[in-house]
Design a protein around this nucleic acid. Structure first.
Length: 850
RNA sequence: GGGCGUUUAGCUCAGUUGGUAGAGCGCUUCCCUUACAAGGAAGAUGUCGGGGGUUCGAGUCCCUCAACGCCCACCA
């Protein structure tokens, strides 16, 4: 078809022009009529809706998009949905502030409730369903902004395939999956010591921990032996837990303490008698070699408590304060008085006070020795975690059963990890689990645990036999919905029922993204066409959470891995090589970068980052991307100008040796790019295509333009034109996954349809038979370069004529040179040519200045 | 303490069955060449982290050490 090239090609406005065209043409629509083997399905990460997108999102989502576009061109029907993670604490906090409301799950649903126009000073308590409705409303706005940015970035998502992790479909899937876990015995509740955030007042899972170096101090405390034979001195960083002490412990082989085992001592200040016990976890080289076990100071205490069958004497409440009632074992007068000094104080205040008391009583030896040590925090929290006993729901994940752990590790090995070494992180994590997956949270905004409990005659819940809704009723909210066989007026009454007040942790729902996006049990026809999915792209920091939990759910529900490939993206580093934190003031908004450099340039930068490799935020790389896009505009315009109005000759017209060589080189490029994309290495594909493209522009086009204009006759011209047209066409397709806007623009100048709907080229497409010698191209390039060098070194214009070129080279290379001699002559690289065999050497004589 | 990754030109990084060190940026010099001056051409630049080994030959394979980064671990 005749080309229609703009007078002055430009990148201005291509993002808007083409993203609108793609939407209206439905270029990226998923076609649900195809079978599983024709589908390529992607479990897109749902970004957190209440944050803001940062450049890291742009980076990693671009990687996925290049794969999606490649697979689409390979003829796959790409299932590329978008989710929004609007479920969880960030949204909860935002909604509270934005509307001036607070969630009270004990309140009934009010269908007429509307928040006031201005948030009131005093937060309005509302029911959980009302609260969720507001969360839904507010996150919709954020999601629109995110979608606009992703569209501008050129993500080839099918925007009709959207979900939010709090929407009805997700809540239903989350509750359904849980009820099935419950029915099969994979989910259970247990009253047990749990890591607890005292500010959020919720239990926290192992996967959500992080350690922070905090100042602390060793306090040396003397425990008097009850037999009067002296003292045992322990060192502790948490003297305030003395009333919760249930034993001392030392290593069984520690000679210093062997004689003390199974004797008793009295706790300083409180006079409670506790035993001295032996356990192999006690470390002789730590502190004084003997530790006090409290319920509970840290996770080791929990292990000791469980394995040594110790009693529970909890003193830290869920608000992080010392509870008012002293353990009943404290009976001495001073013990009761000392406890009263601590009751109601925060842990920190209690520590200050107890150190004073210990000083007065003389039971602390010397001054506290300041240290810093790692302390466990909830990753979103501000105060150290406490350990409190509470009833929580768990899903088995291998943390307590070797057999389940082995199954999870086997699933990990079934995945193709990109890059491969990321698998070690999974293996490491699963191998190090020390408890099952805690899924319940004492928060409001999230998917409610879909259970009620029958109340006995005393009004106490029967936790062992929860009341379970039928799947047909889902999603339910037990705070307002009523179990079958009961009426609302029985809520909270003896012999009545109560709803489980808790919600699922956000990972308990997002571990089901393949099921939610794929329409599991809602649209099984669709689900069977997309599951198990082909690709899970995600950050390597959430292997232990999102990736692992998704594997756990899929393993139990479907008996398979949830996807076949897991591609882990790297971090964006700021120019100081530090991980770019959202709190860092230097964070540039993605939109401003897209506006400044253009979407293709940003994508080029992103695609230059190898899979899984941390990459610096580098504006220089973006500028190169923009330069490439502009070069593509200009080169296309030029080549189309050479090709003229009539159709380009077919590939069979390619007869000139240099053209045959070009096609051969092009075939090699196609194979390399294909192999790279198949291995999820978009960066390598780009690198290869880019270097070919610059060679094509700088050398090949320069070399053959004269012949293509017809200066060596029609047949020779047709050969050049066919090679130019074929190569241009192929290059546009090869670049399409990386820089979709400029390729669509230049494709539209001379081809019908969207370039993104074209097939991926194969080396077979460009084969001209077993001909073409790459040596011809190499020699031609060398000759062109020798001519340019001579002009540059003589500080002469590139228009300067070459009077004579003497070439000494091998027989084969001289033969190759003769095959492009005419083209070189027309390109101005030679006029007179002298050839001789020998050591490689070019001598160039320039014409005299005019 | 365990695991993983990184270490190649001033900077950012390629280097895939072991075979004479690469790209881009930056730098120097030159050129308005009717596709491109927000461009083009050419040039300079490296004990490939250290040490040892295998080999005719090692940036590439093996051992070892070091630095940096990340993950994990029972952190009294």
């Amino acid at each position: 078809m005749a080309a229609s090239v703009p007078e002055k090609p430009s990148l201005d406005g291509v993002e808007q022009k083409w993203s609108e065209a793609w939407e209206s043409l439905g270029v990226y629509n998923f076609d649900r009529s195809t079978t599983r083997d024709q589908v390529y399905s992607i479990d897109t990460p749902p970004p957190t809706a209440s944050g803001s997108l940062h450049i890291g999102h742009v980076f990693s989502y671009t990687h996925t998009d290049t794969i999606a576009r490649y697979q689409r061109m390979r003829g796959k029907n790409v299932f590329y949905p978008m989710g929004w993670d609007d479920n969880g604490l960030p949204t909860e906090r935002r909604v509270q502030n934005y509307y001036g409301v607070s969630c009270d799950p004990s309140l009934p649903y009010d269908p007429t409730f509307r928040p006031p126009a201005e948030p009131p000073k005093q937060a309005i308590p509302i029911s959980r369903p009302n609260f969720i409705a507001l969360c839904d409303e507010l996150t919709k706005e954020d999601e629109k902004a995110f979608e606009a940015l992703f569209r501008r970035l050129g993500l080839s998502v099918d925007w009709s395939l959207q979900y939010a992790t709090i929407d009805t479909r997700s809540r239903r899937a989350s509750q359904r999956a849980f009820l099935r876990n419950l029915a099969r015995g994979e989910a259970y509740s247990q009253d047990a010591p749990t890591l607890w955030d005292v500010d959020y007042k919720t239990a926290v899972a192992q996967a959500e921990l992080e350690e922070r170096e905090r100042p602390a101090a060793y306090h040396a405390l003397a425990f008097h032996k009850t037999d009067g034979s002296g003292d045992i001195v322990i060192e502790t960083t948490r003297p305030e837990l003395l009333p919760a002490c249930v034993a001392l412990v030392a290593h069984p082989d520690d000679e210093r303490f062997k004689s003390h085992f199974n004797t008793t001592v009295r706790i300083p200040l409180f006079d409670v008698e506790v035993p001295v016990l032996a356990h192999s976890l006690a470390q002789p080289d730590k502190g004084s070699g003997v530790a006090m076990i409290c319920t509970f100071g840290d996770t080791t205490d929990v292990t000791w408590w469980r394995e040594l069958n110790l009693p529970t004497r909890a003193i830290v409440g869920r608000d992080g304060r010392i509870i008012s009632d002293a353990p009943t074992v404290i009976t001495s007068e001073r013990g009761i008085a000392n406890y009263a000094e601590l009751a109601g104080k925060s842990v920190k205040q209690a520590q200050t006070r107890i150190v004073e008391l210990l000083g007065q009583s003389g039971e602390m030896l010397g001054e506290p020795k300041a240290i810093t040590h790692p302390v466990k925090f909830y990753e979103k929290g501000d105060r150290p975690l406490e350990i409190v006993a509470s009833r929580q729901w768990y899903i088995r994940n291998g943390g307590r059963e070797e057999a389940v752990r082995a199954e999870m590790q086997k699933r990990g090995r079934e995945l193709n990890w990109v890059p491969e070494f990321m698998w070690h992180r999974y293996e490491n994590w699963v191998g190090g689990l020390n408890g099952d997956w805690l899924i319940s949270r004492q928060r409001f905004f999230g998917v409610p645990i879909p259970l009620w409990y029958a109340l006995d005659t005393d009004g106490e819940p029967r936790f062992e036999t929860p009341l379970v809704p039928s799947e047909a009723r889902l999603p339910i909210d037990p705070s307002t919905d009523v179990p079958d066989g009961y009426t609302e007026d029985q809520r909270g009454k003896p012999e009545g029922f109560s709803g489980d007040p808790d919600i699922f942790d956000t990972w308990a729902t997002s571990s089901l993204t393949p099921e939610i996006a794929g329409g599991w049990e809602e649209d099984n026809d669709l689900f069977n066409r997309v599951f198990p999915m082909d690709l899970r792209p995600q950050g390597h920091d959430i292997i232990r959470t999102w990736l692992f939990s998704t594997v756990v759910r899929s393993h139990f529900e479907h008996g398979s891995v949830p996807w076949h490939n897991a591609a882990l993206s790297g971090w964006i580093l700021d120019p100081d090589r530090k991980k770019m934190g959202k709190s860092k003031g230097n964070a540039v908004t993605p939109l401003s970068m897209l506006e400044e450099h253009g979407s293709d340039a940003i994508r080029y930068w992103a695609a230059s980052g190898r899979p899984g490799v941390d990459t610096a935020l580098d504006p220089a790389q973006m500028k190169i991307g923009r330069k490439l896009a502009i070069k593509m505009l200009n080169a296309t315009k030029f080549v189309l100008g050479i090709l003229g109005e009539s159709d380009a000759p077919p590939i069979s017209a390619i007869t000139a040796p240099v053209d045959q060589a070009l096609l051969k080189k092009l075939g090699v490029l196609i194979d390399e790019a294909t192999k790279a994309f198949d291995a999820y290495d978009y960066a390598r594909a780009l690198e290869k295509a880019e270097s070919f493209f610059w060679f094509f522009c700088d050398d090949y086009v320069e070399l053959v333009k004269g012949r293509a204009y017809g200066q060596q006759g029609d047949a020779a011209g047709a050969s050049a034109k066919a090679a130019l047209a074929t190569t241009l066409n192929v290059l546009q397709r090869l670049f399409a996954p990386i820089v979709p806007f400029v390729t669509e623009e230049i494709w539209s100048w001379w081809q019908a349809g969207s370039v993104h709907a074209q097939s991926w080229p194969t080396s077979g497409d460009v084969s001209v038979g077993n001909v073409g010698d790459l040596l011809v191209l190499d020699v031609a390039s060398n000759t062109l370069m020798a001519a340019r060098r001579a002009k540059t070194e003589a500080k002469r214009s590139m228009r300067t004529e070459i009077a004579l070129m003497k070439v000494t080279d091998s027989t084969a290379r001289l033969a190759a040179l003769r095959l492009v001699e005419a083209d070189l002559r027309e390109a101005g690289a030679i006029t007179a040519l002298e050839l001789s065999e020998g050591e490689f050497c070019y001598t160039v004589v320039l014409a005299d200045p005019v």
